[in-house]
């Protein structure tokens, strides 16, 4: 297990390095002279040259990359000239809020989708199964921004039940406490995730319902509730572990739209603003974070499955 994890970490490091090379190279192609973009058109060529020289943008790209990696190793993610702050500070300010939004959404999605999936499998091909399937497919095929727009339009603007924007507080505890304002963004993310999870859960539960151990459990006289809760739930959940692990970084992308839609200051909002401002150091850092999240998500999923399923040996 330990050796496996070490191997995976080494592989992960290689992947992350590859991602940094690709993203750095692409951004260099887009913005080879940040001095002009940062200082504006009115800056003299001398001022632009001075800016590029001061910040090393006049050096060959491989030198710039080595410098960038050197800074990364020291925890320096760069400086946002547009925001006037270090990228690390910007991420620190926004990370907790995004983590709360994603975490709440993914937790709710899991809590709701698992029983729904099992229940659908148990009641397969019934009207209720078809109804839930229809709803799930509708939500699954719906982009989160569209669902969010619908929720804003109906629940916030027409009915006035919720505010049009998410909590604006800086303190994370205040944000968590403001359930009323956070309801719509969390539900938007939850609904799309839940639709996907419930379909997978239903499918996995259907497979397991046909297994011998379920028949054996029933033959032994266990109550249906015990069969579903003890045997079916646990074994069907195994397939979901990988899916959930892979969903964590995907939620970052989902946050970009949802946070922008609900005016919620988080990493997605930061990324969205950086896109608008062409704030490359921020884009680079968040892209890197996304890559690391994918790698870690995979790793956690792999480890979790070995813990949950004794048949899997690494």
């Amino acid at each position: 297990m330990t050796i496996y994890i070490i191997k995976r970490l080494i592989a992960a490091l290689i992947v992350v390095i590859g991602v940094t090379m690709i993203t750095f190279g692409l951004l260099h192609v887009i913005a080879s002279s940040p001095g002009r973009a940062v200082l504006g058109l009115r800056a003299t060529p001398q001022a632009v040259a001075a800016f590029n020289s001061t910040h090393g943008y006049d050096k060959p790209i491989y030198i710039q990359y080595i410098r960038y990696v050197g800074q990364l190793v020291q925890g320096n993610l760069g400086y946002s000239y547009k925001e006037g702050q270090s990228v690390a500070a910007l991420i620190k300010e926004n990370l907790l809020r995004s983590a709360y939004l994603s975490g709440a959404a993914i937790t709710l999605a899991i809590l709701l989708s698992f029983p729904v999936g099992i229940w659908q499998a148990y009641k397969r091909n019934s009207i209720s199964d078809y109804t839930v399937t229809a709803v799930a497919f509708t939500l699954y095929s719906m982009p989160s921004f569209f669902l969010g727009l619908l929720l804003i339009d109906f629940l916030a603007l027409r009915l006035g039940w919720f505010p049009v924007e998410a909590a604006q507080q800086t303190n994370i505890l205040a944000v968590i406490a403001n359930i009323h304002a956070m309801f719509l963004p969390i539900i938007t993310l939850t609904a799309v995730q839940m639709a996907a999870y419930s379909r997978y859960m239903r499918s996995s539960a259907l497979d397991n319902l046909a297994q011998d151990y379920i028949r054996l459990a029933r033959a032994k006289g266990l109550s249906e509730r015990a069969v579903l809760a003890r045997h079916l739930f646990r074994n069907s959940s195994l397939a979901m572990i990988t899916l959930i692990g892979l969903s964590i970084p995907a939620l970052l992308a989902g946050n970009l739209i949802t946070e922008s839609l609900f005016n919620y200051p988080g990493l997605g909002f930061l990324f969205f603003t950086a896109l608008q401002n062409e704030d490359y150091p921020v884009l680079l850092a968040i892209t890197l974070m996304g890559a690391i999240a994918v790698v870690i998500g995979n790793l956690i999923a792999d480890i979790a499955i070995t813990v949950a399923d004794p048949r899997v040996r690494l």
């Binding site: 603007l157 049009v164 946070e259 922008s260 609900f262 005016n263 969205f272």
Partner: peptide, 18 residues
């Protein structure tokens, strides 16, 4: 002075009267 991601989120707030 409050901050918004886009003109659309501003417009949402205007519609909501906030």
């Amino acid at each position: 002075v409050e901050t918004f991601t886009s003109n659309q989120t501003v417009f949402n707030a205007l519609q909501a009267g906030t």
